[in-house]
Nucleic acid binder design. Structure first.
Lengths: 255, 255
DNA sequence: CGGATGATTCGGTGCTCACCGAAATGTTAT
DNA sequence: ATAACATTTCGGTGAGCACCGAATCATCCG
């Protein structure tokens, strides 16, 4: 009888990815808000997240326990506080993808400050370790136009692009980030166009920060383009002025 | 007073991606199972899904309503039946990514047939429009070894790779699938290594099907390598024999 | 025109889980 | 030591929702 490697008396188990369990972690408004907040790539304390999400500290504890146990968050304890951050780039990328696919929800804007902040977010913000928002999308488009990136069986860095990078003074990162796909795009959830992620996106972001082309708000995910950045982006990439400062009008409604 | 485009008397609303709402769709065992089933790229009727997920037809109706309304599924009605499929490649890719990130769940194996089927699934299966499983992962590895793919600021098709493709007789797909990143990998949830997706993955899959290197089971996602396929994969790519037939042993437990 | 079939609507049931507050734990500061 | 602080534990409450069965609707078939 053909019973290849089958033992009836032994309990047999197979492993299946528990998609529902993972999704359940994100299926709660509060937990989703926490994850979106952590998409800035930073490290937050439990208390900060409690206030941000406007729930009791005890509730936050429960949520963080679940998210850490589920592998979405990494934690680090120091004394009486608990620091959490996203588990890694994979997690961030998946969250971004999900956000790009998600339906929109309308939230009221209560103050002028909030409106301005939102406009700034649409213009340029961090997305874990790279640049998102209109600026990030414009980068992809302009670099493609200029032949630094090309769509040939995938979005790739061309020879001209590699040359341009070294001319910028970017060290050849080589295998340092070899585990991530290097040129990646992900759907921007404000503009619904792709922006640059992956290792190349991360490299460009770091470089722009170092050269102070952009500065990051210490408390939010907002990036602003400095004066030197404005000229650099214009001279080295030909970025149009619209992409370099938050537009006065709200972004156009999505078609 | 600086009140740029702010009207106090007008109700202001901003749009935020509702991550929780999207995740809630997948946070249910039954709905998750439905989506995983549809990852074979096929079109199912409501009744088939009801039986597959072992819930009442009425329950299935409710689930499908939610999934369609949420944009994850596309539906098509013909007479008294309701056909559903995944909304598109983006959806499929996100689901795969999620599955790769999800924790594992142990499910009992009840019969020898089930064990064999599971082994076949691990070896080679469809993943929406490309090849997953050990075979899919081996493709990436071998093609990289042979210099057809390279990791230089991203996984790209090399010149040699492009040449190899045309030698295979693959028409230069050009912009036909321009909207998808062409060379993509996604984490295989059986082997936990990357397999080829994106437009290149889809192209290779179609080509292999046309040439009958592989055939797809009409009822499941299982792919099997034909005799011609075995020689083709060996001659043209140097795929090792282990990658060409389901191993007799269960896949090694993940480390 | 029935009768079979696929899908849907609806009411009801039971379970899960997000939330809070009060008290407890452990850490830093005075 | 004592006080202030960050976080956690626990019990209890309320709301949401996955599920089913029975009845209904729509379509296809003989």
């Amino acid at each position: 009888m053909y019973m290849n490697r089958w033992d009836a008396d032994q309990e047999k188990l197979a492993e299946t990815p528990d998609l529902a369990a993972l999704a359940a972690l994100l299926a709660d408004r509060t937990r989703a808000a926490i994850c979106m907040a952590l998409l800035d790539g930073g490290t937050w304390t439990a208390g900060e997240l409690a206030e941000y999400a406007s729930v009791a500290p005890s509730t936050t504890t429960e949520h963080l326990n679940l998210l850490v146990a589920g592998g979405l968050l990494a934690e680090e304890r120091q004394g009486r506080r608990r620091y959490v951050r996203l588990a890694g780039p994979d997690t961030a990328e998946t969250l971004e993808n999900l956000a790009g696919l998600a339906p929109y929800r309308h939230v009221p804007i209560r103050s002028l400050a909030e409106a301005n902040q939102r406009r700034a977010l649409h213009h340029a913000r961090t997305c874990y370790d790279h640049i998102a928002g209109a600026l990030g999308c414009a980068l992809v488009e302009v670099m493609t136009e200029r032949g630094l990136l090309a769509r040939e069986y995938g979005l790739v860095l061309t020879a001209a692009g590699a040359h341009w990078l070294t001319a910028l003074g970017v060290p050849d990162t080589g295998p340092s980030l070899a585990h991530r796909a290097h040129v990646r795009t992900c759907l921007d959830w404000t503009v619904r166009r792709p922006h640059l992620s992956g290792a190349l996106g991360a490299t460009l972001y770091r470089h722009a920060l170092e050269r102070r082309w952009i500065v990051k708000s210490p408390t939010t995910r907002i990036l602003s383009v400095t004066e030197t950045g404005r000229t650099a982006f214009r001279d080295r990439l030909g970025l149009p002025d619209e992409a370099l400062s938050p537009s006065l009008a709200f972004p156009a409604p999505r078609g």
